[in-house]
């Protein structure tokens, strides 16, 4: 039952960097269409976990099955990019390229090399880019150099890229950390809307409790590479969050 409904099945996920244990033997099962918030102080392993789920860094130990296929068996490129996609803070765009090329990068997994090369000189699928950008309210920026856009606008470009990639699982690493509260809310709304479109799964790391309560269904607390809690969002209490973040502060001093 769970096996059929779940899209992520991780067993004993472990990753170390030299002497530092970034993730220690985590079990994680996420169902189709779930909206999971990942919380935890910095250095707790959120980025590492998301990168592992995205297939960007290899596991030391453990088993990761995405959509009933071991991640090692998924062909990088087309097959993997249909299943997972990642948004980071605005760092993940190429600032020198025009907006349209950054959005079309979402197609690179599907396109062959020749098509990718040709599109760099004369953009393919412009219509779909216009459609995605209009939905995000920045269609007028399509030909602008990406570095000219504000932080919030760049984050929308990253979401547009994700819309063209259209992966089953959307991973977002602190997508709103560098934005002011109003813009952060707007970006999360757009991101979760895109996810809800066709029952996509979303896992995002973020710190703001009110945004977590509003846009997510499940919360996982991470500290020093271990899950501290994994609860429905209704059970998220201030004490729990305080404990998660405070414990670390006591630990560091």
């Amino acid at each position: 039952m769970t096996a059929a409904a779940s899209i992520i099945e991780g067993r004993g996920l472990a990753k170390s960097y030299g002497a530092i244990t970034a993730l220690s033997s985590l079990d994680l099962t996420v169902g189709r269409g779930e909206r999971v918030a990942l919380v935890g102080p910095s250095g707790s392993g959120k980025t590492t976990l998301l990168y592992i789920l995205a297939g960007l860094i290899p596991l030391d130990h453990g088993q990761l099955v995405l959509r009933s296929k071991p991640v090692a068996d998924l062909r990088p490129g087309k097959e993997l990019s249909e299943i997972v996609g990642l948004v980071q803070q605005q760092l993940d765009l190429v600032p020198q390229l025009p907006v349209i090329q950054n959005v079309l990068a979402g197609r690179l997994g599907q396109w062959g090399l020749l098509r990718s090369l040709a599109s760099m000189f004369s953009a393919h699928e412009r219509g779909e880019v216009v459609e995605a950008l209009s939905r995000l309210g920045i269609a007028d920026k399509i030909d602008e150099r990406t570095s000219q856009l504000s932080g919030g606008e760049q984050q929308r470009v990253a979401i547009a890229r994700l819309m063209l990639q259209a992966p089953r699982i959307i991973l977002a690493d602190e997508p709103v950390s560098s934005l002011d509260p109003a813009r952060a809310e707007e970006i999360l709304r757009l991101l979760t809307e895109v996810a809800a479109d066709s029952d996509r799964t979303i896992i995002a790391s973020l710190h703001a409790p009110e945004l977590i309560r509003k846009y997510f269904s499940r919360v996982i607390g991470l500290r020093e590479g271990k899950f501290q809690f994994d609860i429905p969002v209704q059970e998220l209490t201030t004490q729990r969050l305080d404990a998660l973040y405070d414990l670390d502060r006591r630990h560091q001093s």
Partner: peptide, 21 residues
């Protein structure tokens, strides 16, 4: 910087496409 390259890789870009984009 690695950030933009990781972004492209997570979109399924091969090393040659990461080079061009």
């Amino acid at each position: 910087p690695d950030g933009p390259l990781d972004g492209l890789r997570s979109s399924g870009a091969s090393p040659a496409k990461v080079l061009v984009y």
